[in-house]
Structures are given as structure tokens and as C-alpha cells.
Write a protein that binds this DNA or RNA. Structure first.
Lengths: 186, 186
DNA sequence: CTTCAATCGGAATCGGAGTCCGTTTCCACT
DNA sequence: AGTGGAAACGGACTCCGATTCCGATTGAAG
């Protein structure tokens, strides 16, 4: 089940991810594969043996961010006030700092079926579910708020950031709506 | 200032826009230029003489929608209840029906400086400003709501729709926040 | 019915992702 | 320590679209 990979193969893979990380974070999606390969000191062929396509690389490069987010979520989003709100603001912060992360998130919504590539991602998902549950139990969000809603808004947030709009304003406009719907009484 | 264009040139331009309209509306962004040219019964070169690049064509093809939206806005968004809310729902409806329109809107936010191509677009902008003013005067939206906020949300809406998410839900979550911020008091 | 500038059409060029294959490098086994 | 060959390498090459170029057409002014 686990033919240990060759030493240099592993090393190269790491180099590629590392190079991709920096380039994507800095310039977002518009970086060419040959450029990444060069920066990593390998040939394009090598990049493609490790990652089926460009998108897979984008996601792999962002993977560490998901772990980072999860870490933050676990330690800061289960207090007195709304964990979701903190979560959104933190993600907004990261997204606006790392243009590669937005690319990765946006990709998780391209064509159908391609759902969850990456492990850190899946584990983050369950934490988000816990936050939603926690906030709901504490009456910090409208009772019909679901995990799907969170993803919906994270996706929107990502697009807002990608286009260089005022994302803080977006959150200021949007987050209050998640709180108990005082004005939506109907 | 106006060397009247040759008759056939104008006819061809119209054919191209027409073909593009149908193809984009149906399949969104993934339609090739040669295909559009063929559908219009002209050569690619002709397409490019009329439109500097693919993007310009996408926008030209969506132009009529902007006129449509403006028409709707003028006649339905100045009543008793929130014009903005009606506006958002109408645009959501159109966007979800015409995949080319989302592409056009998203393009209006790509790289900097490329702001307003297209005339119908500019004229629509002023109507939106009027709606905001009208709603504000009637106390139907939070007093600090600006036109920029509307574009921010329309952009987000477009991205939500493009990714096939539940846009009605997005509006249900978001629009209440535009109303007077009862819960944002502090 | 000329004339010729505006138009046309579509072959050719360009740019960038992804593929192929001859060469090189590990490392399991002697 | 030596060696066979499977795995990994690199980068030239193929593919696919958008965009450009230019010789052949064609509308319309005179």
C-alpha cells in the first residue's frame, strides 16, 4: 500500500510546492508552470509528475493555509462572542494577504464533482461545522444558519477580495445578517 | 467626426453580436472565437476588426441586458417598498438565466482602469444611484448605504451565481443587512 | 464603370498548459 | 562495492485558443 517514494522525488516535490507557494501568494493565479518549474530548479515534466494539473498545484500550495485556518478556528472561535464572525474576518485577512489562497478557494467551486482535494481541507470543514453548531447553541446566529451558508459567504468573500473590492465593508454589510434576524421578523 | 461605416460592415457587426449573444447566454464564457465567427457567417478577422478582443465582444453581447435592467429599474424600483431589494432579485434572475451576463459583469472588475466599456452601462449606473437615494430618503435602507455597496453586492451575487450556488439564499442572507441595521446598533 | 480605401476571410503566429520519451539517478539485492 | 532496472528527470514538442497579418474583395464616391 505504501511503496516509499524515492528520496529525491520527495525533495523535488517539496521544492515545487515551496516555489509555487511563494509565486502564487505574491502574484495570484498568473504565474506560468515553466516559471514555477524554473524557480524550483526542476523541469516542467517533474512538476506534472507530482501534480496532475495546474489546479492541483494551486491547491497543494494553499494547503498549509487551511491548516493555519483550522488552528486559528479551534483556538479562537469558541468563546463568548460569535465564532463565525471571527472566522470570517480571519479568513478575509488571510485571503487578502495571500492571492494564491483565493485561487485555491475559487477552484473548489469550479465545475461539478471536483469537491474536496486536499486533506487539511476536509478536516477544516468539520471544525466549521462545530463553530456553526456552537454559535447556534449560544443563539449568536440565526437558527437557520447552516454550514452551506458559511461556504456560500466564504466563496462570495473570496470573489470580492479577488476583484480588489473593499472586503471589510462586505463583511460589515453581510455579517450582521447572520446574527439573529431582528429585522427579518417577516 | 463620423465617417459613416460601410453598409455591410454594420450588418456583419450586428450578425456577430447576435451570434455571440446566443452562444454566450447559453454556454457562458466557454465559446471559441472561431465558433462565434462561423455562427455569424464571417471570418475571425472580421470579428476582431469590430471588437478589439474577446472581452469587448462579451460585453457588447451583454449590452442589451443592461438596457433591459435599466428599463426594469425605472419602472419597478421606485415604489413603496425597497427598490434595491427588487433590483437585486431581478438582476439575480437575469444573471442566472443568461450566463453571458455574469461573464460581462465579472469582466467589469478584472484588472484596473478598464472601468466602463459600453454605453447602456453608464446610463444604468445613474439609475442605480437614484434608487439608492430614493430608498435612503424613505428610510428603506441603512443610511450609510452607498452605490458602491450595491456594486459590491452585485459583484458578489454574480460570482455566487457563476459558481452555481444558491443565489436566492445568498440574497435572503444579505439583503436584510441593507435594511436599517437594527441589530448593529452599537 | 473606375478607383481605392474599408472590409473581408482564414492561414499563420503566439502564448501557455500539458505530454512524451530518451537519459539519469536511486537503491534493493548480490 | 557493484549492478540492474524501476522510478524520476528535464525540456523539446504537441495541442488549443486567442489574436494578428495580409492578399483578395467589395461598397460607394466621382
Amino acid at each position: 500500500m505504501s511503496t516509499k517514494p524515492r528520496a529525491d522525488a520527495e525533495r523535488n516535490r517539496a521544492r515545487v510546492v515551496e516555489a509555487a507557494r511563494e509565486l502564487f501568494a505574491e502574484r495570484g493565479d498568473d504565474v506560468q508552470m515553466p516559471e514555477i518549474a524554473r524557480a524550483a530548479g526542476v523541469g516542467v515534466g517533474t512538476v506534472y509528475r507530482h501534480f496532475p494539473d495546474r489546479q492541483a498545484l494551486v491547491e497543494a500550495a494553499a494547503e498549509h493555509r487551511f491548516a493555519e485556518i483550522e488552528e486559528y478556528a479551534r483556538t479562537h472561535c469558541f468563546g463568548e462572542d460569535s465564532g463565525l464572525e471571527r472566522y470570517f474576518r480571519y479568513v478575509g485577512e488571510l485571503l487578502s494577504r495571500d492571492r494564491g489562497l483565493t485561487a485555491a478557494i475559487d477552484s473548489a467551486r469550479g465545475r461539478p464533482g471536483s469537491e474536496p482535494r486536499g486533506t487539511a481541507r476536509g478536516s477544516l470543514e468539520s471544525v466549521v461545522a462545530e463553530i456553526v453548531a456552537h454559535d447556534r447553541a449560544a443563539g449568536l446566529v440565526r437558527p437557520d444558519c447552516t454550514v452551506a451558508d458559511v461556504y456560500l459567504l466564504i466563496g462570495a468573500l473570496s470573489s470580492v477580495i479577488r476583484t480588489g473590492s473593499d472586503w471589510a465593508r462586505f463583511l460589515d454589510l453581510t455579517l450582521p445578517a447572520l446574527r439573529d434576524q431582528l429585522s427579518t421578523e417577516h
